[in-house]
Simulated scan of single mutants.
Amino acid sequence: MREQIDEYTAITADEGMRRNVLKEATTLGIEKEGNIIIGNWQSEGPEEEELCHGEMFDTILADYLVGAMDGFSPYYQDLIFPRLNKHLKPGGRLYVVGLNPIPHQADGDANIFCKVTKLRDACILLAGHRCYREYPVEWIERHLENAGLKIVGSSQFPIMYSHAAIVRQLNVARSKLPLFPSKALAKEMGEQIDALERESKAATDRSPTGRLRLGFDYVVTAEKPLE
């Protein structure tokens, strides 16, 4: 049984994600209990025009927010927790979900995913778009404390990549090829994507579990002190 939700506000800067969240809310039967809106925390202008001005919440969930900010509000990452803290009630909790940065390289077959992420990001940049930028759990904890919040918990969850999960990242790279400045470059990069897909299939097939372990997701829980 889920906890009772009196009211919620869900915010994303991406229209596709807004539709996904609305679908999930509908599945949970809570679509009428809140609002799902397009917005950006990096607002300019008078304070009264800021996103969620005057709203206060018992709980705030920053779900992979910091990692996505470089794509929508670059160079604002160090200010996001003070910004969210403005909307957290005393005694309320902020949950930060994130992905620890993928290493530049790794031992064994898991290194294939490091190669995939580098190729994916190269395609994003060549298409004229911005990449996401993940932050390590230590950075998150440090900036939460700098914002005046108390760390009350931190958990890590190892990631096991299936071949299907790897292909999803390669498909992100493929989706950028039509935007390349050169058709020849797009053709060459497409061949590299295909080669990495074959290499990743061989690597996951060698694994007893059919998956490659690399890195981890985390959840950091911070609490606002009672006034």
Rank of each mutant, 00 (worst) to 15 (best):
N40G: 03
V97I: 13
N171K: 05
I112N: 00
S43R: 06
A222W: 06
E49I: 00
L22S: 14
Y76Q: 11
N100V: 01
A165E: 14
A184T: 12
I112T: 05
D58P: 02
N171A: 00
L119K: 04
W139E: 00
F216Q: 14
E141Q: 11
V97C: 13
V116E: 04
H53C: 05
A202W: 02
G190C: 07
K150F: 02
K224M: 05
L125Y: 13
L61H: 13
G34V: 01
K89C: 04
M189Q: 09
Q4G: 07
Y75T: 14
A173C: 10
I30D: 03
N85C: 14
E199W: 01
E7N: 14
H104Q: 12
P101Y: 01
V152S: 10
A110R: 03
E31K: 03
R142F: 02
P101A: 03
L214D: 02
A25W: 01
G91K: 10
M189H: 05
A147P: 06
A25L: 10
G16Y: 06
G108C: 00
R198T: 13
S182H: 05
H143I: 00
T12L: 09
T209A: 08
R19S: 05
A165Q: 15
L61Y: 15
T27M: 12
E3I: 01
L177F: 02
I193Y: 08
L177Q: 02
C131N: 15
E31H: 11
A186M: 06
L212P: 05
D217I: 07
P46V: 07
P101N: 01
A68K: 10
P101Q: 00
M160L: 13
Y76A: 14
N35D: 14
L196W: 11
T59R: 15
A173H: 08
V137E: 14
P158F: 01
S182T: 04
H143M: 00
V172D: 03
A186C: 08
E141A: 09
Q42P: 00
C114M: 07
K176V: 09
N100G: 08
E141C: 07
M56T: 07
C123S: 03
P90R: 10
F57H: 06
A202Q: 11
